Computed example of a mutant assay.
Amino acid sequence: MTTLTDDRRTSAAAIAAARYFYFHMALACAAVAFLGFAPTYWLPLAQRSFSATPVIHAHGVLFFAWSLFFVLQSWLAASGRIVSHRDIGMIGVSLATAMTIMGFLVSVNVMKRSAAVGQTDAGIAFSIVPLSGIAFFAVVFALAVANARRPETHKRLMLLAGISILDAAVARWFLTFLAPPGPPGPPPVAVTIAPAFVAYLLLVVAIVHDWRARGKPHPVYVVGGLVLVAIKLLNWPVSTTAAWHTFAGGIFALAQ
């Protein structure tokens, strides 16, 4: 009898842990986002030594608001408040839409700032990083909304979307503590790969969790993860092509 009771308690604890896994992952994403931007945004902002255009500040507000909203939605789902989770879902849609627009504007801002210091080509090349990143986020988020009534798919797509935008936060630590001093302007596209793969370790955690719980990773992680990695690896060679410079350069010309 004691063994049976212990087994039931263990089973209940395991179920509870599985239910709150995505909440804990959302917390981890938020922590990476906030800590990542601490040395280059939050601390300088608190010290009143940070100067940026309104576009950058609006971008920061939206993306950090998303991090908090993601945590809230994950908690509501984990605690069984599904009705509340769905009732405020349109807030997430509005945030994601605004983030997509702002991500595009920030990409244009990168090109403008680079041109101002005489590095137009470097800015056009680097713009592939934010543009491809926000495009991936937007597509995966849209798929998550389309699969809202398929919770196993929906929550994994939401987590994939959340992880996909963390490379910029991790990159700030690389730039702050590892990057050698250099001229003003965007960094080479190649240096964005390592921070991205550090951020993607959270996806590895999710895959391992699936493997233990389901015996295999969910297709969202397999297909979505492979696409995410492929995009990041292809950013570097594609950014050097004439086709990319024509495409992004055209966007830059229209924004002038």
Rank of each mutant, 00 (worst) to 15 (best):
V170H: 01
L254M: 14
V55C: 06
W211L: 15
T10N: 15
V61E: 08
Y221A: 11
T3K: 13
G89Q: 06
R212Q: 14
L159D: 01
P219H: 09
H245V: 04
Y20L: 12
G249A: 06
V139S: 04
P184Q: 06
H218K: 13
V220T: 08
R8A: 10
K112N: 14
G225D: 07
F247W: 03
D6M: 09
L233T: 09
G80K: 08
A190K: 06
V108T: 08
V61I: 15
Q119K: 15
P195E: 12
W211E: 09
R150V: 10
M1W: 06
L35F: 10
A17T: 12
H245G: 12
D87F: 10
S94T: 14
W66F: 11
P195N: 11
V108C: 03
N109H: 12
W66S: 03
A169W: 06
L228S: 14
W211A: 11
A28W: 11
G162Y: 02
P195T: 04
I165P: 01
V117D: 05
A31D: 08
L178Q: 13
I165D: 00
K155L: 05
A14V: 08
T176L: 06
W244F: 08
G185N: 03
G250Q: 00
A148T: 07
I193R: 05
S79G: 14
V198C: 05
L234D: 09
F136C: 02
L95Q: 04
L131S: 03
H85E: 08
G182W: 01
G250T: 02
